[in-house]
Computed example of a mutant assay.
Amino acid sequence: MKRLENKVAIITGAAGGMGAAEAILFAAEGAKVFITDVQEAKLKAVAEEIKRQGGIAEYAVQDVSSEQSWIDMAEKTELLYGRIDILVNNAGITGNLLGPIEDRSVEEFNKVIGVNLLSQFLGVKTVVPYMRKHQSGSIINISSIGGIIGSANATAYTASKGGSRSFTKGAATEFAKDNIRVNSVHPGYVATPMTKEMNGASDFEQMAVGATPLNREANPNEVAYGVLYLASDESTFTTGSELIIDGGATAL
């Protein structure tokens, strides 16, 4: 039996990188996936790839910082598939990583918090009632090693990811009575389209490799398999945890 057979999963930020890897892997493991992002063409391509491989997928453009978009998306998922078993709050942005705090604007800070943290609150708030109907569910919030260690010039990002870490633990405690598990995943440096854009403008890739004892960036699939474990019934006694997948970066 496949690891996610008969389960329905929502994955945000699934147009590329880790989100796309998670969606393709989940579908291969038997899940029906509903994927969202703001990049419609790339999102459609991921859904088509899943279907080409024999999986089941639907997609929708979603602003994850909008409560109404979450309400609409959850209603559509249940209408399509009859239930919601898994939520992966994967959507995220880095924001402007160059420059000191005093040069950052309130608008910049709020945008990062909205996409990276508010979205997770809205996702949990919206999806939990659907999971509660079946007295089961798994929610995985994608945080970062930036939620564990500090980083100069990335304070909005680290604040959002630290908030994700703490929010996860509070939600895990709150929903344990409903048999709904909530865990966070903390990737280190991952080779994704987002980080490649950063690499093109800086020495980020060289820095990332130098800060990682395994001496390389992760492949998105290496994170996706950790998310798969938390989504599956293999982790039914795991909640409120933080799974670090960083090549040893936080061990230094």
Results as ranks from 00 to 15, higher is better:
4 L>F: 08
5 E>D: 11
6 N>E: 13
6 N>M: 14
9 A>Q: 03
10 I>A: 09
11 I>N: 05
11 I>H: 03
12 T>D: 02
13 G>W: 00
13 G>I: 01
16 G>P: 12
22 E>N: 07
26 F>L: 00
26 F>N: 01
27 A>E: 00
30 G>S: 07
31 A>G: 05
31 A>V: 04
32 K>M: 07
36 T>F: 09
39 Q>V: 13
42 K>F: 15
43 L>T: 06
45 A>V: 02
46 V>R: 03
47 A>Q: 07
52 R>I: 13
53 Q>S: 15
54 G>H: 05
57 A>Q: 02
57 A>V: 01
58 E>I: 09
59 Y>A: 03
59 Y>D: 13
60 A>T: 08
61 V>D: 12
63 D>G: 15
64 V>F: 09
65 S>L: 02
66 S>N: 09
67 E>H: 12
68 Q>T: 14
68 Q>V: 15
69 S>V: 14
70 W>M: 10
70 W>P: 12
70 W>G: 09
73 M>S: 06
74 A>P: 15
74 A>V: 13
76 K>A: 13
78 E>R: 11
80 L>I: 15
81 Y>S: 10
81 Y>W: 15
83 R>S: 05
88 V>F: 07
89 N>F: 03
89 N>A: 08
90 N>S: 11
92 G>Q: 02
95 G>W: 02
99 G>E: 13
100 P>D: 15
101 I>D: 13
104 R>A: 12
106 V>W: 08
108 E>M: 08
112 V>K: 02
112 V>I: 04
113 I>R: 00
114 G>R: 04
118 L>S: 05
119 S>V: 09
122 L>D: 12
125 K>M: 14
126 T>G: 14
127 V>L: 08
130 Y>E: 12
131 M>W: 00
132 R>G: 13
133 K>Y: 02
136 S>M: 11
137 G>L: 08
138 S>P: 15
143 S>N: 08
146 G>N: 09
146 G>R: 04
148 I>F: 12
151 S>V: 15
153 N>T: 04
153 N>H: 07
154 A>K: 11
161 K>R: 14
163 G>R: 06
163 G>Y: 00
163 G>D: 08
164 S>E: 14
164 S>C: 12
164 S>R: 07
166 S>W: 15
171 A>Y: 04
172 A>E: 11
173 T>Y: 12
173 T>H: 13
173 T>D: 15
175 F>R: 09
181 R>M: 14
181 R>W: 10
183 N>C: 10
184 S>M: 08
185 V>P: 13
185 V>R: 01
186 H>W: 06
187 P>V: 03
190 V>Y: 01
191 A>L: 05
197 E>A: 11
198 M>H: 05
200 G>P: 08
209 V>H: 00
212 T>K: 01
213 P>I: 01
214 L>Y: 05
214 L>G: 06
216 R>H: 01
217 E>C: 10
217 E>H: 09
219 N>P: 03
221 N>K: 01
223 V>L: 00
223 V>T: 00
224 A>Y: 07
224 A>P: 09
226 G>W: 03
227 V>N: 02
228 L>I: 00
228 L>M: 02
228 L>T: 00
228 L>S: 00
231 A>F: 10
232 S>Y: 09
236 T>W: 14
237 F>S: 15
237 F>D: 14
238 T>H: 09
238 T>G: 12
242 E>H: 08
243 L>M: 11
245 I>K: 02
246 D>Y: 06
249 A>V: 05
250 T>C: 01
